[in-house]
Design a protein around this nucleic acid. Sequence first.
DNA 1: ACCGCCCGAATTGCATGCAGTTCTAGCTGT
DNA 2: ACAGCTAGAACTGCATGCAATTCGGGCGGT
Lengths: 252, 252
Amino acid sequence: MAGRDRTSKTAESTDKVSVICRALRRAIIEQALEPGAKLPEDSLGERFGVSRTIARHALGQLAAEGLVELRRNRIAVVATPSWQEARDAFDIRIELERLVVRQLAGKLTKPQIAELTAHVDAEDRARDGADAVSIRLATEFHILLAHMTSSPILVRYVSEVAYRCCLTLSLYSRPHSSECAINEHRAIIAALVKGDVAKAMELMHHHLDSVATRALVAPSPQRGRDLLDILAPYADEASGEKVVKLPKAARR
Amino acid sequence: MAGRDRTSKTAESTDKVSVICRALRRAIIEQALEPGAKLPEDSLGERFGVSRTIARHALGQLAAEGLVELRRNRIAVVATPSWQEARDAFDIRIELERLVVRQLAGKLTKPQIAELTAHVDAEDRARDGADAVSIRLATEFHILLAHMTSSPILVRYVSEVAYRCCLTLSLYSRPHSSECAINEHRAIIAALVKGDVAKAMELMHHHLDSVATRALVAPSPQRGRDLLDILAPYADEASGEKVVKLPKAARR
DNA sequence: ACCGCCCGAATTGCATGCAGTTCTAGCTGT
DNA sequence: ACAGCTAGAACTGCATGCAATTCGGGCGGT
């Protein structure tokens, strides 16, 4: 892994803050924290053994990345992107990752190739395991690729948008997600190694596009937008039974 | 203005924090704050009439956007992107803004067209004024365009990367910057109105590329570069280590 | 003069405290 | 029983205080 630099890359890593950021990011993309989940500063602080100040700062960072929604005087929640936002995120991601493979084609070093194939092997191995893990690994493959451009900016944007896509996947996709995706990863590596720029870009484009269209199913009759629409079908049941609250108090 | 969204999107606007962010952003892109300028928390807090906590939070946000560099236990400074980072930023920007015009071509409403032309007129008027102002206006034209996609994510990324480019312009460009750029803006609007997607994308691409190549002059020589960066490669020898790091240099 | 060394000032890292806002649950009136 | 109301809990917004670290300049050695 490349987490060993003296100057930790992107933006800032005030240590405690960035530790919390990483933990939350991971929890979010592994769907341990679902979209809409509440993130009170105190609870976070308590969990991570820091004060609210730090937890707050971390939330601010994650909000800047679009993973968390921050409304004034309200509890922060895991972001709940609209369907349209999800589609936009994928569109952006496609362009960014085309750029990645364009820069990378034919320029991978041997150790890099080894690292990539090792990662894909890991993806294969995790296939039977938890769904969340395989999603995370699939995402990390793309981020790993971005890292190899050694362009900090590109890394940052690809990471961010990939995480966002991950988030939307947990909202709009069906259970099964990345079956043949792993093979597509291999195909991309092959094209990169061969130095076939056009092919690599096309493969990446198709790969992401297929993931997007497979995941983001219906544009819906009327622009499936807010969670109000999503909750509509459940409204009937809800009227008959109490709304289940999060066991937040159960913590202590 | 085009304040169409109910909630002022983009990450968070905790008021005080975002006010400071906006102020600093503007100061940075207008070059009132040059790259490398120190930004002590207390001073900021005093200037804006808030506590360090808030100033700190603002710096965190700006760092997340890449406008500020935050090193642990050290005074925050305005970011000083390397030449390569500048070039990378422009590459990303090109792809993002191509996406913008692709989405916008033929879909502009009359008031939007009016707003755009009004903005370009303002650019024209500011031509004789301060250089900083015309740079800011030029940048804001692109952001305005992004806004019209009404895709919050796209807005965010285009804004960020445009600001970063602005920043690099102040580092590596010569005094005169955007002469015919204004006409190029007009041409882009025309293509968008006509609905000529390919033309608009091509114009935008060329526009940004020419700005980049005109601005980012020297591929190798060190202009505003840090002495430390320049000496970095020699440091390895000095420390007694072997010089075995080819991959880094291989990138460019 | 030039180098490293050391100590005080400046500055950050973080926790805590208080005030203001929102949320929740219990209570009252009809 | 139920809608509306209200008080208290929960939570955020922000400032301040203290410990740890870095910065900057004077001092002695060579």
